[in-house]
Amino acid sequence: MDNLALLSFGSQGWGDELLKGLCITLLLAFLALPIGLIIGTGVAGLSVSSSRFGRAFATFYTTLLRGLPELLTLFIIYHGLGLLLNQLIKWLNPDIKYVEFSPFAAGIIALALVFSSYAAEVIRGAWQAMDKGQKEAGIALSMNRWLIFWFIERPQIVRLALPGLGNLWINLLKDTALVSVIALDDLMRAANIAVGATKKPFLFYLSVCLVYWLICILCERVLFKMETRLNRGISAGK
């Protein structure tokens, strides 16, 4: 019962602190997702384009970001971008003192970049798996490339890429735990603080693990529903 009291809400327990951390975790993931998707789609577009430079850049981008540890990417963004920003500010106005780069912004940027590099590969795969005739039909109807992308390619890419993107979304959720290292008060760090105060590491880390696990299982369920819905027009027998 003692353990339950520690996890309860209110002034005695750590439940509300953990819940606040969970909100930050979810906020990070939900903000990084659209940014990552947009960048990822852009990079995927480059990798299927006819421009040799575009393709080379896309390969470089995805290889680099998928080859680096997420933690290292996070540190490079947090410290590197912070230093760069400070140099820029100093150059514009020498009187301003050192400005701390927001760990929240660094977290979102790093998570979005990592997500985009993996998403680019998934989306490229979906893009290339599509029948060429679809695009040709669009051209025959004298649609321009944006119309073709939006009305013909996009809906099919979503269907083909959803299983892969779903996995990436779950990875993104799990990767948010890394931002606790740069002192951002997410779920993981809330647990760290609670452990520091109560000296009950197993209890808190286990509860945090269970929360992440629950969210992941929930997401898997929702993604499964979405996949079934998106595939409703496709015959199940295949």
Binding site: T176, A177, M188, V195, P201, F202, Y205, C209, W213, C216
Partner: peptide, 22 residues
Amino acid sequence: SFFRGTPLIAQLFLLYYGSGQF
């Protein structure tokens, strides 16, 4: 399901710091 559904860093903390409780 457990190991794929929880962050690696949380598993690491659970084992390294959590073992201290025992």
